[in-house]
Design a protein around this nucleic acid. Structure first.
Lengths: 159, 159
DNA sequence: ATATTTATGTTGCACTGCAACAAGAACCGC
DNA sequence: GCGGTTCTTGTTGCAGTGCAACATAAATAT
């Protein structure tokens, strides 16, 4: 189980990336949205790293003969986030591809390894309950919970 | 109880600010740390607003005849954060004064009102348990959980 | 009093994030 | 197919974030 959340350093990137792309394509088709070349490239870049990337890092990775402007990246990211293919890691001002196909408003807990930079998504069902209770006490109607935890991941710990 | 978490719009700023300053002074004295004029000014600016402020907003508010450089503000913020007097609201790239004297590694849940911008700190004891369990399952040793929830606060909702 | 630590000033820069407008590409109805 | 609408991308520009690196000043320690 522990291994399921943090991708092993030697796992098959190719396969998990192509699965995610396929999922994105299917979702877009279903919603009549367009996974344009740029959007696809941004998603692929994030999938290929499994770590949070900043806008400039994304530019680096998808730059060929031409360099996309930052705004282009941000627009692609906005699209990908709106459709749940990408998450923003606020504590790092960075973005990471989602590999979990969770439902729209599922609560997700991001576990961020301080050593290798990997990000795991832990299911947050139990946490969600506690959070709901906590915010209700404050007379607060919650919308989008953001949970990010820094620490050391299982793979880095083993060494 | 609901009222305790979000400061009422008409509450006594003066008093709650001076209490927090006094607390910061005491803590600094106890730890042989210096609450210098700049650090104090930054803390006071944040206390006076009860909303998250960005670095430039802080500069605006403490600028007299001279304008402190951004780095000066960031350094003061680093100090205040290290000592637990100020929290960073990552989802907004902003900072807010802490008015709760919680213990060093207490888990705090930030409730951020999308309408008025106020930030409440809800106690997160129950959430902490669930989170610990969740991250342990992932073989993850957690350090500093960050929980931010956007929504509508009790005061704004009443209208 | 001098050395050491600690804090602030100064300069400079890379990165974030987006607004506003222009131009191009895809889709729709006729 | 054609023109109009909508969606997407390109271009320019800018305010804000966040900090590195070095110089200077202030406080503490010896």
């Amino acid at each position: 189980m522990a291994r399921a959340i943090f991708p092993a350093p030697d796992h098959d990137h190719e396969r998990c990336a192509s699965t995610a792309i396929a999922h994105a394509e299917a979702q877009c088709a279903a919603r009549a949205q367009r996974l344009t070349p740029i959007r696809r490239q941004v998603l692929e870049a994030l999938l290929a790293s499994h770590k949070p990337l900043g806008a400039y890092e994304i530019i680096e990775r998808i730059a060929g003969d031409t360099r996309p402007a930052p705004i282009t990246i941000y627009r692609a990211l906005d699209f990908l986030r709106d459709n749940g293919f990408v998450h923003r890691i606020a504590s790092r001002n960075a973005f990471v591809a989602c590999v979990h196909n969770h439902a729209d408003d599922d609560l997700v807990v991001f576990l961020i390894c301080e050593r290798c930079g990997a990000v795991g998504e832990a299911p947050g069902a139990g946490v969600a309950e506690a959070l709901k209770a906590s915010s209700r006490t404050a007379g607060f109607s919650a919308k989008s919970p953001l949970i990010e935890i820094a620490g050391i991941c299982s793979h880095c710990r083993e060494r």
